[in-house]
Design a protein around this nucleic acid. Structure first.
Length: 591
RNA sequence: GGGCUCUUAGCUCAGUUGGAUAGAGCACCUCCCUUCUAAGGAGGCGGUCAAAGGUUCGAAUCCUUUAGGGCUCACCA
C-alpha cells in the first residue's frame, strides 16, 4: 500500500472516530516549499461534512496521524492545510526498493493485453519532410514509446500517401524538364530531387495560367485548363488504369523519395514496425459502404453517392462514396482502420498523429466506425497537435518559408559543435566520437524544444531560441546527466550497501521527485503527452543541480554519506536516461 | 455565418479531479569556479492569468457574454 493510501485510510478513520463522519475522499497535494512538511492534506473539502473550524479539525487529524502512522513524524496546520512531515526512514526505504532498478518507472507489458497501433508521419511522397513533419514524427514516436513504457504493446505505423495528383505533378515535371536526372547523377537526396520537380511544376503551371489570362481567359478558367495541369490529371488517370510506363515512373520516383525519407528518419531517430501505402489501401473500405447501407448507417442519394447523416450527433452529413462509385478519403480511412485490425488481431486501439486541421475529420471517422459496430472504435484517439509557426508567420511551401527537416538537424548539430568547441571539454575524444556527441546534443535540443510544449498547443518555432542550450532545454538536462557520469567514473565505491542515515534537505527533495516518476509515465500515457515527461525531467534535474551545487558528493564527510549520495546521483541519472528514452533523446557520457 | 479551439511576466512556456502569496526558462541586474564538468548554482526585477459578469468557503482552472487570434465547414487529401 502506498503512503498516500495509508494516509487516506487513516484520515478517514480519524474523521470517523472524532467527528462521526464517513469521508469518501481525502484531498492531497505536495507541500509547498515555504512550509514545513512533505505531504499536505486539504481540510476545506471536509467542511461540507464536518462542522467546525478547519484549524481545529486539522489539529485533530494531525495528532491522530502522528500517533497511528509510523512514517508521520510531525505536522502543522496553516489556514486549513494540514502539512504532514514524513520520516526519513520512509524515503530511505523507498530508495532502497528502486536503486538497483535500471528500468525504474517502466511497466513490462502483459502479453495478454491488447496492443495499440500508433500512426505518425504519413507524408506525401512528392516533397521532402519539413518542420511540421518533424513535430509530427517526434510526437508520434514519443507517444509510442511512452505507451510502451506504461505497459502497453505498441506497433508504430504510418500511411504513406504515395498516390494522387501531387506525385503526378512531380512525375510530369521530371519527365518534361528532368533530362533523366537521378539522385546519383545530381548527388541530391531522392526526396529533394523529387521535391524540386514539384516546385518546377508549380512554376510552369503559374506561367501557363498567366499566359492564358493574357489571352483573355478568366483566372478560374485558366487555373482549370492550364495544359500542364490537364496533363498531370491525365497521368493520374493512366496511373489508376495501370498504364505500364506511368506506373514504372511512379515506382522509380517514389523509390527515390523513400530512400530520402529513410535517411531523414534515421537521422531523426524514429522508426516504424509496419508500413501502409495509400496505393494499396485507397480502394479499401468500399465493401463497408455496402455494409453500412444494409445496416442503415449510410444512405444513398439518387445520383448514387453515399452519405452518412450525422446531424443527430451534432455533425454534418458526410459523403463516404462519390456518385461515380469511387472512394473518398473517408472511405479509405474506414477501410484502412479495419484492415489494420485484420492484419494485427491483437490491436485493441489506435492513435492517429495528425495535425489539428483534421479534428473534424477524425471526429467523423471515429463516429462512423462506432456506428458500423466495431468494438475497438471506442479506443481510437486522434493525437491532434497544433501548427508550427515561425516568427515570420506561417510556413508556406509555395513561398519557400518552410524549414527543411534535414537542414534543421544539420544546423542543430553544427551549433552544438560550435558551443562544445568553445567550452573545450572533450579532450581525448576522437573525431568520430565528437561528431556523434554533436548529433546527440543537437537533436536533444531540437526534440526537447518541440516536445516540452503541450501537443495540443501551437508552437512558435524560433530558430534562435531552439538552439539555446541553457535553462529549460535538452542540452541542460543532458549536461546534468554527463556530470553525474563524471562522478560515477571517479567514485570507486561499493554501491550495493543499503545506507540508513538522516537525510539532507536536498536529498529528501530529490527522493520525493524520484518517487513521482512512475506516475508521470502513466499520466503521460493516458494523456498522450510527452510534455509531461519533459517538464518532470526538468524539475528533477533542477533539483539535482541544486543538490550538486550545495552538497559535496564525493567530498562527503563520512563514507556512508558518500555512498548514499553516489547511489542517489546514479539513480537520478538513470531516471533522466529513462525519461529521455521515451522522448527519443539520447544522453551523453561527457559533454 | 455555424462548429471546434486558443489568449498566463517584455519573449517562450508550466500551472490535470477548483485550494495557500500564480511558477520556470530566456532577456535584464547582483553575487559564486585554487573545491565532484559554470551548458551550472544563489538572489533581484518583472503579472488586472484577454475583458466583464456568474457559480462557492475558495476560480488562471467551471458557466455565460464580449474582444482578438487559429483551424474547419468540398463528390480535395
Amino acid at each position: 500500500m502506498s503512503l498516500q493510501e495509508t494516509l487516506s485510510n487513516q484520515v478517514k478513520q480519524a474523521v470517523l472516530a472524532y467527528f462521526n463522519v464517513v469521508l469518501e475522499t481525502v484531498e492531497f497535494q505536495a507541500t509547498r516549499k515555504e512550509f514545513a512538511g512533505d505531504i499536505t492534506i486539504v481540510i476545506f473539502p471536509m467542511l461540507r461534512f464536518i462542522k467546525g473550524n478547519p484549524g481545529q479539525i486539522g489539529e485533530t487529524i494531525g495528532n491522530y496521524l502522528v500517533e497511528n502512522v509510523e512514517d508521520v513524524k510531525a505536522f502543522n496546520v496553516v489556514k486549513g492545510f494540514l502539512n504532514v512531515e514524513i520520516s526519513d526512514a520512509y524515503y530511505i526505504n523507498f530508495f532502497n526498493t528502486i536503486k538497483h532498478d535500471e528500468s525504474y518507472g517502466f511497466v513490462t507489458p502483459n502479453p495478454k493485453d491488447k496492443a495499440i497501433m500508433v500512426e505518425y508521419s504519413s507524408p506525401n511522397t512528392n516533397k521532402p519532410l519539413h518542420l511540421g513533419h518533424v513535430r509530427n514524427n517526434l510526437l508520434g514516436y514519443s507517444v509510442a514509446e511512452i505507451l510502451k513504457a506504461s505497459g502497453k504493446k505498441v506497433y508504430k505505423t504510418q500511411i504513406i500517401n504515395d498516390r494522387g495528383i501531387h506525385i503526378c505533378k512531380s512525375m510530369l515535371a521530371w519527365k518534361l524538364f528532368g533530362n533523366g536526372e537521378t539522385p546519383e547523377s545530381t548527388g541530391l537526396k531522392g526526396d529533394k530531387l523529387v521535391g524540386n520537380y514539384y516546385v518546377k511544376f508549380d512554376q510552369e503551371y503559374k506561367k501557363e495560367i498567366n499566359s492564358l489570362i493574357e489571352k483573355g481567359k478568366s483566372e478560374e478558367e485558366a487555373k482549370k485548363n492550364a495544359p500542364i495541369l490537364l496533363d498531370a490529371q491525365q497521368m493520374l488517370q493512366k496511373w489508376e488504369a495501370g498504364d505500364k510506363e506511368v506506373v514504372e515512373l511512379w515506382k522509380k520516383m517514389n523509390g527515390w523519395v523513400y530512400e530520402g525519407f529513410a535517411e531523414t528518419y534515421k537521422n531523426l531517430g524514429v522508426d516504424f514496425d509496419t508500413l501502409y501505402y495509400e496505393s494499396d489501401t485507397y480502394l479499401l473500405g468500399k465493401e463497408f459502404v455496402v455494409e453500412g447501407l444494409k445496416s442503415g448507417v449510410f444512405i444513398q442519394e439518387e445520383d448514387g453517392s453515399v452519405w452518412c447523416d450525422l446531424t443527430e450527433d451534432g455533425l454534418d452529413k458526410k459523403i463516404v462514396q462519390r456518385s461515380d462509385g469511387t472512394a473518398v478519403y473517408m472511405t479509405q480511412d474506414i477501410g484502412t482502420a479495419i484492415q489494420r485490425i485484420k492484419d494485427f488481431p491483437d490491436v485493441g486501439g489506435m492513435v492517429y498523429t495528425v495535425g489539428n486541421e483534421q479534428d473534424y475529420h477524425f471526429q467523423v471517422l471515429f463516429l462512423i466506425l462506432k456506428k458500423l459496430g466495431f468494438e475497438w472504435a471506442k479506443n481510437l484517439y486522434h493525437l491532434s497537435y497544433g501548427m508550427v509557426d515561425l516568427p515570420s508567420g506561417k510556413m508556406k511551401s509555395r513561398e519557400g518559408t518552410v524549414v527543411d527537416a534535414d537542414d534543421l538537424i544539420t544546423e542543430m548539430a553544427s551549433t552544438a559543435k560550435e558551443i562544445s568547441e568553445e567550452l573545450g571539454k572533450l579532450d581525448g575524444y576522437s573525431e568520430v566520437e565528437k561528431q556523434e556527441l554533436y548529433s546527440i546534443i543537437g537533436l536533444g535540443a531540437l526534440k526537447y524544444y518541440i516536445l516540452k510544449v503541450d501537443p495540443k498547443k501551437r508552437i512558435l518555432f524560433d530558430p534562435k531560441e531552439s538552439i539555446d542550450f541553457q535553462g529549460n532545454t535538452g542540452p541542460f538536462i543532458q549536461y546534468t546527466y554527463a556530470r553525474i557520469q563524471a562522478i560515477l567514473r571517479k567514485a570507486d565505491l561499493d554501491l550495493s550497501a543499503n545506507i540508513d542515515l538522516p537525510l539532507h534537505e536536498k536529498e529528501k527533495e530529490l527522493l520525493k521527485q524520484l518517487e513521482l516518476f512512475p506516475e508521470v509515465i502513466q499520466n503521460a500515457a493516458s494523456q498522450h503527452s510527452p510534455a509531461l515527461v519533459a517538464n518532470y525531467t526538468y524539475e528533477l534535474v533542477k533539483e539535482f543541480n541544486s543538490f550538486y551545487q550545495n552538497v559535496s558528493i564525493l567530498g562527503a564527510d563520512h563514507l556512508n554519506e558518500k555512498i548514499f549520495r553516489v547511489q542517489l546521483s546514479k539513480q537520478v541519472a538513470s531516471t533522466i536516461k529513462n525519461a529521455f528514452h521515451v522522448l527519443g533523446i539520447q544522453v551523453p557520457e561527457r559533454m
